[in-house]
Design a protein around this nucleic acid. Structure first.
Lengths: 295, 295
DNA sequence: TGTTTGATATGCATATATGCATGGATTGGC
DNA sequence: GCCAATCCATGCATATATGCATATCAAACA
């Protein structure tokens, strides 16, 4: 076969791809962990090598030329293939040493993961861990994470998912706050209580009312989208918040609100890519997470 | 997006692809026009980078491992895309044939441009060149030229201008002439020297005096508006002339006058129409001029 | 068994690419 | 209209990769 046609610098194609997708050399350099001048020179070199003007240098940022646009599709294909190489080789690597990236919600990342990570580091000191704490489901297929802890059944059919168990969500507040609002014992007693809201859409109210309460918007004077902030507010005695029962029960400064209330149940799913089946490292961490989260 | 998964050395993937397809490092090196040790090191580095053993080193030739085989499909996909990039860009770079008109002063046209044009013709035989040698700024907007070399910042805001660098203007004469006037070493020694003037307005005298000389009209017995004529007069030992230091220094028959004299600095600007951004042909010539004039 | 052939590794001088620091230019906000 | 922020380009010291010459190795063959 004649390989001359692929005999250009492939790294420069990578530079072009990331630059085009990110929109600027600086952003691309940050994404790739390289220096901006390096990427600039690589793109310029690719233009010379291919004899095509890829970008218009336009003061702020770069502008893709029509020629560059025409090439972008093919470069994207290269990137997809490169991604597949990376994922496949990651799965085939039998080395236990290496990095594992775990995605979880901020609450789980802050309160559930630390002791598990500590144990993992003790058992397998060769494994380093990266934690992506986000409320948004990380894209495992793009390797934003290797393992994800989610509270819903994953929709991606190509992913491996394991349901760990159902956990209760309960209401918590400080004893001082509960005393202040008259130590509520029935749902009606909570009609004048303050709740810390964690969404704007009203789904939170509906969820609580489905537990048997009858709350209105006036019960939610405080809003934050951040669960950790909500929890700190609850611990400070500002109002009532809802949280995973296992985490709430472990916090000594708060207590359950109306223990008789039936808790809201939700599932914990552990999700991984197909490489789980071939990579020892992923398997070890997955199994450990599964075991610890079942407790 | 997360680009970490494509952030490995793509050239090493190319090395793996061609090696696997050709069956040996030596054959792959021949196909790619590289040295065999280079390819061997690239493949080895890829194995380390991915944490996968790709080849079994077996005395005669290499043997693909199952892991390597699993990756080969994805690497082939990369190669296919790379091939598409190469073909597409080749088709697009076909359109560079045509004429380019370059405007420059007669001196630059005579002494700076010829080697650059020669190189351009060598690199891009499809491009033909027209040179407008004039002291008057050609009107690019009227397409009197596509690219202009000027010694001042262009005033037209719609033109694209790139400052190449500042060049020194120095005094030159033949060694014989300098000896004849007493080998001048100070500014005062030049008070009886003959200069070849290249303007009538007196700006030339003022320019020289701003360098530290103290000349009067009697020092300018010869006038020509043509720099080339002036330079020939200097080379014939008629008197002292001023010229771009890079051109003057390259002329063996003359030498600098009073080397201690601080040279008069003036800029070189490369100017083009907005078309530069869309025309590969203009871009190629512009970049070449920029590169060569920077030397 | 010795020899030839075609392959992969290694040492070293050199070429090439990279990062850092900085300059220059443009945009957006106050 | 000025200032700050952001982005691209350039110069230079350094790190990295490459090529050449050569050593080493294994298999085929006389």
């Amino acid at each position: 076969m004649d390989w001359r046609s692929v005999n250009f610098d492939w790294n420069r194609a990578r530079a072009f791809l990331v630059t085009a997708e990110e929109g600027s050399l600086s952003a691309a350099a940050r994404a790739l962990g390289m220096a901006q001048p390096t990427l600039g020179r690589q793109v310029k070199a690719l233009e010379q090598e291919l004899g095509v003007v890829l970008f218009e240098r336009a003061g702020k940022g770069l502008l893709l030329t029509p020629d560059g646009l025409a090439l972008l599709d093919h470069v994207r294909a290269m990137g997809e293939a490169a991604n597949a190489i990376s994922l496949t080789s990651f799965g085939q690597s039998q080395a236990i040493e290496g990095n594992i990236c775990i995605a979880a919600s901020p609450v789980y990342a802050a309160y559930l993961l630390p002791p598990i990570i500590a144990r993992l580091r003790h058992i397998e000191p060769g494994i380093t861990v990266e934690i992506v704490a986000s409320n948004f489901a990380s894209d495992l297929n793009r390797r934003e994470a290797d393992i994800a802890i989610r509270n819903f059944r994953p929709v991606e059919p190509e992913l491996i998912a394991k349901k760990i168990r159902d956990v209760p969500a309960r209401l918590y507040a400080t004893p001082e706050y509960l005393e202040k609002i008259g130590s509520p014992r029935t749902a009606a007693d909570l009609n004048s209580a303050s709740f810390i809201s964690i969404d704007r859409t009203g789904a939170f109210i509906n969820g609580l009312n489905s537990m048997g309460l009858s709350l209105t918007e006036k019960n939610f004077p405080i809003f934050t989208e951040n669960y950790l902030v909500m929890w700190e507010l609850v611990k400070q005695g500002v109002g009532i918040g809802i949280l995973d029962g296992n985490i709430g029960d472990a916090e000594p400064s708060v207590c359950r609100v109306m223990d008789t209330l039936e808790p809201l149940m939700f599932p914990i799913w552990l999700v991984a890519r197909h490489e789980l089946k071939t990579s020892r490292r992923v398997r070890i961490v997955f199994d450990l997470l599964s075991e610890e989260l079942s407790k």
